[in-house]
Nucleic acid binder design. Structure first.
Lengths: 214, 214
DNA sequence: CCGTGATATATCGTGCTGATACGTTGAGTC
DNA sequence: GACTCAACGTATCAGCACGATATATCACGG
């Protein structure tokens, strides 16, 4: 249960891993890190922080002003147990590491992840997207035959997923190269100035899509 | 309240507008129509149907077998009041018609929508996406400075939104053309065989994305 | 006939989302 | 110095989505 909850908690631990933060700042960073669309609400953040407190992964400290302001703020810190938990979770390639939220969170902390784990996660994500693509293409026209707008919507959705697939494929190739040749460029290494690539393009979480979701 | 709920109800009314359906079939079609990612669960569908029943927009009929099977099925039909409500909602360019779910639902029923309303919806959606783009580009590097993976994630997210923007722009131009020249090709009219277009590309709901969302 | 898988209806717990409330701090401005 | 206003900051609530699960019927093959 709580797939999304788990990835939110993981993201919080990841941010606190670097430095202690208070709620407001935490929300801003989370919104930058994940979620370019709808923003994370306090109604999700605070309950998540409480769960983390209960589990002993973080502690809270009431701090009084950093320099000028004497405004009270509640600062959250990660505990050693929390660091350990974060390490286990980020490494865990268990079921569900390829879902939208979970994948994004893990990807955001890739620089703290081992190369082999990175590869496993990228490949898992890739196969998950390919499944979506198959389902979408297989369904063909869905019920309503020849509606122009509907088929345009579908075309665009499929193209989006294809773009996403291409992105992952490039990342995987980059990982493999840097894996073989010592430990060089870890990231994307976009082929060239790109533009006018003959291959297909794919895109984001099918859900959202111009497509999507919802 | 209930942005998502409202768009789900609208989608159900839109499907029932064509023909009566039972729950199982309704779910399948909704999953084709919207949501290429996570599928709609009965835990959302049945409560939505109950809300629609309570409001008097649909009625349920227990049907016994279409041909061979004498299995009981509960078939839902739209009422005249439901048709009217659907017409009002689909035309309503009120606040919130540009959100991910809401926009997708409305777009899916574009062929039953007047040309001027289509344009208003597309333009509203466009400006909403442009806002996202501005926010994302403005934020620049968000806190963590130079993380290779993080910046790659951001780059891809932004590209996705740009692709989405381009899609909408093309659609709007197509609408304007067909608007001026009588009432011809309503849909996309992709420029040519496409591929290797020199312009930038944009994409789906920032949320999902490789970026993403949600 | 018995198992398997698609069809079909329904509910429950967990917790996300958007709205809202309330209070503080700092900067501008007249 | 008093006023306004936006950003900061913590917190809660109603409504509802989601995933899991329970139950049952039907078609088909072995």
């Amino acid at each position: 249960m709580a797939r999304k909850a788990a990835s939110l908690e993981l993201a919080v631990l990841g941010l606190l891993h670097e430095s202690p933060l208070h709620g407001y700042e935490l929300r801003k960073r989370l919104n930058l890190l994940l979620g370019w669309g709808r923003l994370l609400s306090y109604g999700s953040l605070y309950p998540a922080l409480k769960r983390l407190l209960r589990a002993g992964w973080i502690t809270e400290v009431t701090a009084t002003s950093p320099g000028v302001s004497r405004r009270q703020r509640i600062v959250y810190q990660i505990t050693p147990a929390g660091r350990q938990h974060f390490g286990e979770q980020i490494t865990d390639t268990g079921p569900s590491a390829w879902e939208d939220d979970s994948f994004n969170t893990r990807f955001a902390f890739f620089s703290r992840t081992d190369a082999d784990v990175r590869l496993r996660i990228l490949e898992g994500r890739l196969s998950r997207l390919q499944e979506r693509l198959d389902r979408a293409q297989h369904s063909g026209r869905g019920g309503s035959g020849d509606d122009r707008y509907l088929s345009e919507l579908r075309r665009h959705s499929i193209e989006s997923v294809e773009r996403e697939v291409k992105w992952l494929t490039d990342l995987i190739n980059a990982e493999r190269s840097s894996d073989r040749s010592a430990e060089q460029t870890p990231a994307a290494t976009r082929p060239d100035q790109d533009q006018s690539d003959t291959t297909i393009s794919a895109a984001p979480p099918a859900d959202a899509t111009t497509g999507n979701t919802r």
